[in-house]
Design a protein around this nucleic acid. Structure first.
Lengths: 234, 234
DNA sequence: ACAAAAGTGTTAGACATACACCCATGA
DNA sequence: TCATGGGTGTATGTCTAACACTTTTGT
């Protein structure tokens, strides 16, 4: 033991300006539910490297903005919205992930209701697309496939013990809508009675008193989440 | 919506060398159980800023090493050991966390059996100390208090649904030792019969056939973990 | 009256919790 | 024989999973 202890300048050098620094970016997984599928925004790259490949939105972090600010900025640039559930996912820093040089990326994920964005109205509409997570292109730019998969996994885990799903639903919703979203993310059918029991026993949704009338069948009660805050149960 | 969409150079600038970059470091929470407490290695700073304050070990990431390599390097420098459970925790990037300039730090946590390190033999022995997590100094350097607290919370959560605790125990152990570790981390007493049932039903430990004889009482069977791999259950 | 989605209860099994006594050993 | 930690089983409550029919509406 201790054969190779290096006498290290403590923690970090006196002068940060002398060291060679990696570039640091944020990458943003913007998830939504659309047409029965979990989708994520991808951007077609118009430059090398990976020209023509699809990538996750992202940008270099400015020296004057925090990580979360950078993530929110990218989100706003791509979608025009700002008030969303945002969570830091993981930081990816392999040496070769970007051929232009060393780039470390801090991945975030955001959940938005699908109707809150119209990508066709975004300035780079031709290059931004909603893509089903289960139908990704074979290859994405950089290590972005890994990032999307990591994020999907986290989402799938986390809806099981938190109320994050509310990021994906409109303010008022029917129980059947909510259940559908769980089913899509989990990839399995749920029992309607048990689902209702679970949700109500956790006190995570509340009856608004309003009804939703549509089609030739019984109207549905509309519910909302009891709180906007993230709640972790279990 | 979309009132302020900025036409952005896609993803990142063509030339990474022109941008002003933050420094990037790793911070390492090295946890161990000692004298009935969960402890973490802290280092007394000998330079400004926060001279004389305790801090979490860390170092600037070299341009030629991955994040995990940097974390392992710091770990090896501080403890002389390399074969440990290491997990990325979170990335902290507030603007003002380091007064010398913009520093983003990627925090990792490592779990080691206490007897595997002798800090008094480390080169900076005077400056490195095991410190009980429940007895931290009032203030730590930078945002390190937040980091330690975040890490302790993650550890506490994760022992509930994984076998990571094995990072903290020696290769062979008595059930009572294992239980003690859970109790320390969770901060509550556990029932010995229920604990044993849980562990054996999850098939996470296995009888080695060996016995541990000590003191004037019945010898204890020695167990080991069934696998070295991380196992997530639940 | 029928089609379509909304809404509702009960039962059985799995799992978690609470709890108290005997065992093997060394002094 | 006694003190010490090792080792074991049962009963109860709680949570989960499986399962089918009635209600309300529009056409």
């Amino acid at each position: 033991m201790n054969t190779k202890i290096i006498h290290e300048a403590q923690n970090s050098p006196r002068d940060l300006s002398v060291i060679e620094k990696p570039a640091v970016s944020v990458s943003l997984l913007i998830f939504s539910i659309n047409k029965g599928k979990l989708e994520v925004i991808l951007i077609k790259r118009i430059r090398q490297p990976f020209e023509g490949f699809w990538s996750v939105p992202g940008d270099i972090i400015s020296i004057e903005e925090s990580l979360e600010e950078a993530a929110l900025r990218v989100l706003h640039e791509k979608t025009g919205i700002s008030d969303v559930y945002l969570e830091q996912l993981y930081t990816f820093g392999d040496l070769k992930r970007d051929s232009r040089g060393r780039v470390i990326t801090i991945a975030y994920f955001a959940l938005i209701p699908h109707n809150s964005v119209d990508l066709t109205k975004a300035p780079d509409a031709l290059h931004a697309r909603w893509t089903p997570v289960l139908n990704l292109p074979k290859e994405l730019a950089f290590d972005h496939k890994k990032i999307v998969e990591y994020g999907s996994k986290r989402l799938k885990n986390k809806i099981g013990y938190s109320n994050i799903v509310q990021g994906l639903v409109p303010g008022k919703f029917r129980f059947s809508e909510l259940q559908k979203i769980y089913e899509i993310i989990l990839g399995e059918k749920l029992d309607k009675r048990n689902f209702r029991k679970k949700m109500t026993s956790l006190d995570i949704v509340r009856d608004t008193g309003e009804m939703y009338r549509e089609g030739k069948h019984r109207p549905a009660k509309l519910y909302r989440f009891t709180t906007k805050n993230l709640v972790i149960y279990d």
